[in-house]
């Protein structure tokens, strides 16, 4: 089995790799959610060509492998003057990939907000901005939390793909360690167990957050959103 002294020797680089994994994941999720939200809002505008373009964007991102998207961005980018460092390209790639899925999640959430609530807010004289902020987004967040958490767990797993375009995250550092020490199998096994744990932690935290947010909802407006939550998960 794995020589423990290796862990001492490679500890710092593994820790740094883990930091970059978390950085890529966090930044990627953030970009994905913000971009996805904006896409969802733009899709609500009554401009046909715009809707069409966004739909094509979403279908293209969801229909092609993440790895191909990364290669396009990182290797193909310089051809059109887009020179990115591996880590930047990785974060951006993760964000773009996530945005298509988040846009669909948010769209489902947006459509699940009862029309009557928006009409009531309009009749009370609220502006669209404040309706969005005070009526739509809170209801939307609650009904889409399971799907958001699920997507974030998926993105946790996708971070390892960044190692292929040489982002120095955990997987990359582990592979370097494996190549230098010839302890390939042990290293990969260790990594499998580690990611298993990591994804489990992300999902558990997500479920806790979900329980908390839904409890708040039943206090605020007791109109049975549990069924909405269930459909969002599917």
């Amino acid at each position: 089995m794995l020589d423990l002294s290796l862990l001492v020797q490679y500890g710092p680089s593994l820790l740094r790799g883990f930091g970059i994994t978390i950085l890529c994941w966090g930044a990627g999720c953030l970009i994905g959610m913000v971009l996805g939200f904006v896409l969802m809002l733009l899709r609500q505008l009554p401009v046909k060509p715009l809707r069409w373009v966004i739909r094509v964007y979403i279908e293209v991102i969801r229909g092609t492998p993440f790895l191909i998207q990364l290669f396009l961005l990182y290797s193909g980018g310089p051809s059109i003057g887009l020179r990115l460092e591996a880590t930047t390209a990785g974060i951006l790639g993760l964000g773009i990939y996530g945005s298509a899925y988040f846009a669909e999640i948010f769209r489902a959430g947006y459509q699940a907000v009862p029309k009557g609530q928006v009409e009531a807010a309009l009749s009370l004289g609220m502006s669209y901005g404040s309706i969005l902020k005070r009526v739509i987004v809170p209801a939307m967040l609650v009904s889409t939390i399971p799907a958001i958490v699920n997507m974030m767990a998926i993105l946790t797993k996708e971070t390892v793909v960044l190692s292929i375009i040489t982002v120095p995250e955990l997987m990359y550092e582990m592979q370097t360690m494996a190549a230098e020490t010839f302890a390939t199998f042990e290293t990969i096994l260790g990594m499998a167990l580690f990611y298993w744990l990591l994804v489990e932690v992300v999902s558990r935290l997500g479920r806790r957050l979900e329980a908390r947010v839904t409890r708040y909802l039943t206090h605020a407006s007791p109109q049975g959103s549990s069924s909405e939550t269930a459909t969002a998960r599917a």
Partner: peptide, 8 residues
Amino acid sequence: RGVPLLIQ
């Protein structure tokens, strides 16, 4: 389902 496919 929990371990990234690349690692599997």
